[in-house]
Structure formats: C-alpha cells, structure tokens
Amino acid sequence: MNLQNQVIAITGAAQGLGKAMAEEFAKQGAHLALLDMQKEGVEALANDIKKRGVSALGYAVNVTDEAQVEQTFAKLVDDFGQINGLINSAGIMRDGMLLKVKDGKVADKMSLQQFQSVMDVNVTGTFLCSREAATQMVETKSQGVIINISSVSRAGNMGQTNYSASKAAVSTMTVSWAKELGRFGIRTGCIAPGLVETAMAAQMRPEMREMFIKSIPAQRLAEVEELAHAAKFIFENDYFTGRTLELDGGTRV
C-alpha cells in the first residue's frame, strides 16, 4: 500500500508511540485520524500535522467503551470518506506478582481490577477498534491494514500476568483476522517490541535500566521512530499479513 492520501487511524495518538506513528505517516502523505482519551493532546497534534500539508483530526474516545468506539469510527469515515488503516497503539501496563508470600503465607494477591484493567484496554480496546475499522473498510469497499502492538512479553514474563496475557491475545487475534478478512482486501500485522524509549522507560530506576539494557544484544532500548518504521513496512509490503514482527533488539523473555 502506498501511504500517500490513505486515511490511517491511530489510537493512543496523544503521546509516545502513537504520536511517533502519526508523525511518520504524515511524512508519507497519509491523512490521519488521531484517537485518544486526551482530547487536547490529539487536537494539538492534529493542528501540528496539518502544517505538513495533510488532513488530520483528533477524536476523544475511550477505546474500552463500545458505543464510543462505534460512534467514533462512523464519524471519522463521515469526515474522511474512507479508512485504509488502523494502528492499535493504545495500551497500559500494571505490573505485579500473582501472589506475594511472606513467611509461608499469602500477604497479597493481584486484584481482579488490576488484571482486568489491562485486559480491557489492551485486548478489548484492540478488538473494538479493529472490529469497527474493519466494518468501515468493508462497507466503503476500501482495502486496508490493521496493525496491533504486542510485546516480547507475550511469551510470558515474571510479574506481568495481565500484560503478558494481553499481548499474547493481540498477537493471536492478528492471525485470526488475517484469515477472516483477507477476502475483503484487509491485511493484518503485529509488532512485538522489547522495552521502548518512552516516558514509562524513563521512570525506571537507573540501576534497573542499566541491568535491563545489558541483557539486550543490541545494548539499547528501541526508539519510537523504529517502531513507526516497522509499521510503515507492514503497510507498504502487500504480502505481509497475519504475522508478528519482532523488534526487540534480540531480547528473549
């Protein structure tokens, strides 16, 4: 797919990875629908992107709210006339051990809310946005691409029961949708990064950060621009579908 004049929706677009994706795709001449709960953030980004000579609109939406997601995707197709791509960048992390044991007794447990909140955003949000994007692609007869963001943690990682489960789920959904939607000209892809140089990574304790980086063969964290480049590759390579692209610097959890 040539990104010039294509309409791409990006969730979690107000900051971090989503913002980097938006800026990269604007350079390629794509028109952008920017989705995030931070209304001021996406509107400011949209205004900045318009200076590049492409169309951009910000939409305030909670990706876990079915009615909001349905309304937002219907509205963006009204605004742009079509949708050719979706990047599910919205996601959260709430790490914790399944159990905390002291002196042979369970002192604490991961709460259902802690588990469910991550599943709601990372899995349900991805499902709802992808379902509605695919619906609009089919009904407007627009070929398109859906990209999910997984993680190296999808293989399972200590202290990440909820996050690992959610990232394994979005990787497998990518395969299912490739098989279901291919006949409509819709491809799917998934990117599984290791730790990325974002505000969240910057909050790590220096000694923990240094120890983690030493475990990475590439000896550094991923840059958000490198993930944006990976997304660009998936969009532009018309034979890529139903697969997860690992971008982890050689890390294996």
Rank of each mutant, 00 (worst) to 15 (best):
A60H: 07
S164W: 09
E197S: 10
Q113S: 15
I146Y: 04
S55R: 15
I8N: 00
G156D: 02
K141Y: 03
S166N: 08
I149H: 02
V138D: 02
F233H: 13
G159R: 09
W177G: 01
L181A: 01
M119W: 07
F80R: 02
K100Y: 05
V7W: 03
S130Q: 04
L245F: 13
E210H: 07
A133H: 06
Q4A: 11
I186W: 05
G156R: 05
Q203F: 04
F235C: 09
I234W: 05
G29Q: 03
G144I: 09
N2Y: 13
A169P: 05
V196K: 02
A74T: 13
A169K: 12
V145W: 05
A26G: 00
M119E: 03
G91R: 08
A178L: 11
I92G: 01
A13L: 12
I146E: 02
V54R: 05
K141N: 03
V175E: 04
A46T: 08
T244S: 12
L35G: 01
L245T: 09
N84W: 03
M97V: 10
E180Y: 02
N47Y: 10
Q6T: 11
F240A: 06
Y239M: 15
I83W: 00
S166M: 09
V253M: 13
K105P: 02
I92F: 08
K27F: 10
V121N: 00
Q113D: 13
A67I: 11
I10E: 02
D103A: 15
N5V: 12
D248F: 11
I213N: 03
K39H: 14
K51I: 08
